[in-house]
Design a binder for these strands. Sequence first.
DNA 1: CCACAATCCTGATCTAGGTCAAGCTGTCCA
DNA 2: TGGACAGCTTGACCTAGATCAGGATTGTGG
Lengths: 241, 241
Amino acid sequence: MQHAAKSQPEVAMRNPIQCNQCSMQSICVPAGLVSSDVELLDKSSREPHVYNKRAMVYSPDQPMHSLFAIKSGSVKCYTIDSEGKQQITSFHLAGDIIGMESIAKGAAVTYCEALETSMLCEIKLSRLFAQNFNGVDKNLLQLLSKRIGQRNVHYLNVVNTTAEQRVASFLMAMGDHLHEHGFSRQEFRLPMTRTDIANYLGLAVETVSRIFTSFKNQGLIATQQSILTIKNLQELQKIAA
Amino acid sequence: MQHAAKSQPEVAMRNPIQCNQCSMQSICVPAGLVSSDVELLDKSSREPHVYNKRAMVYSPDQPMHSLFAIKSGSVKCYTIDSEGKQQITSFHLAGDIIGMESIAKGAAVTYCEALETSMLCEIKLSRLFAQNFNGVDKNLLQLLSKRIGQRNVHYLNVVNTTAEQRVASFLMAMGDHLHEHGFSRQEFRLPMTRTDIANYLGLAVETVSRIFTSFKNQGLIATQQSILTIKNLQELQKIAA
DNA sequence: CCACAATCCTGATCTAGGTCAAGCTGTCCA
DNA sequence: TGGACAGCTTGACCTAGATCAGGATTGTGG
């Protein structure tokens, strides 16, 4: 992800990192493969594709037999309801694998749009299955299982919680995710708009804005442009709980 | 599930149905196996276990390397928050496979409790993997993928919707699920309390109760005890949308 | 078959957060 | 370099649904 403290810009775009050198190896689908197996991966599974801000990665009903690994940047997944209103189901940052909910149908079930210039690797399922890599299925299975758990956690964060709790746990989740991928937990860029955050959390923009202001006044966070600093992790955590 | 129109009580308990005769075959994990393979399944994967009302199927952190297929009855899955309050993440009826979110951790992440006398088959993952059944992994994968999609749908039904919409789409979802498994879409038993429904949908019990009454007054539904009849599917659907 | 506990319903208030309106800030391009 | 536009903030008001309180049903164990 385009990040304040540790950004890796177009370099990787011109010199694609091999899977066995990739920083995402431990979380990527090929995780658990010995390095020699990685070589066998389809070339298209190794070369990241660049998406500009607002570019669509996939759309509902589009046939899809791949997952995508986000090497850098971020995306939002959303559906459009009967009144044409966007409803965001998830945000994904560098280090995430997306598209898991498409496997059942063989086609995308949501829109997926880049929030900023992003690099994604396409991982073709057919290759994974055909080459019958040892351990791949089990890894994939664990990945999907984990995702179900994450969806449950997000659900719990939204149902039966106050607006303050939702925003606090959203910020904590962002920090935790980035931290897991070697970035700072307390200082990062929010690639999505307040409107997107509000939509995702089931709140009005105004509410999100007010809560940000309130958190700033309490000295819990600081912002300048889209850079967010968590100044009091403990207290924010307490609110999120 | 214990059902008004089509119930299958203790019979199956005493004479366990073989997997290849089981009505759930098409949705169960062994789906896609040829019948001869089914014979190889662990005996424990074929004999349903009976859980009485309020019996716990599993609890968080309990080591778990199985899925459970609900042959009859129903369960609720929930977590307990920091204040000791129960928060229901999902209900499951006959025909559902549960425990998918436990695969990643190798241990349960929620409580799972029978809502009524229920029969569940334990499906050991180790057996499925060890015997390396052809097609099992792919089926499992599709199952998990589908579940992620379902979790998203439920999330969308709760975020940014009115109380009326939530209750309507909850009832529709119940009907649809039962219909998929050969039961009546419009007349069924609600095995969970209003309190449980409210908790699941992020509402107060009183609100759920009022909406049930309102739907009754509008002639959309009828209830007697826990039997619910959807009298105007179209209208209810319209509200749910 | 009765009693008592759980569940369900209904009415009266209260409030978190939505909605509406308007001003502010930053950024992009002519 | 100055609109114009998208995003953000703030204030005033208003409603959906929570909370509180009580009463009606149900169903369950002794």
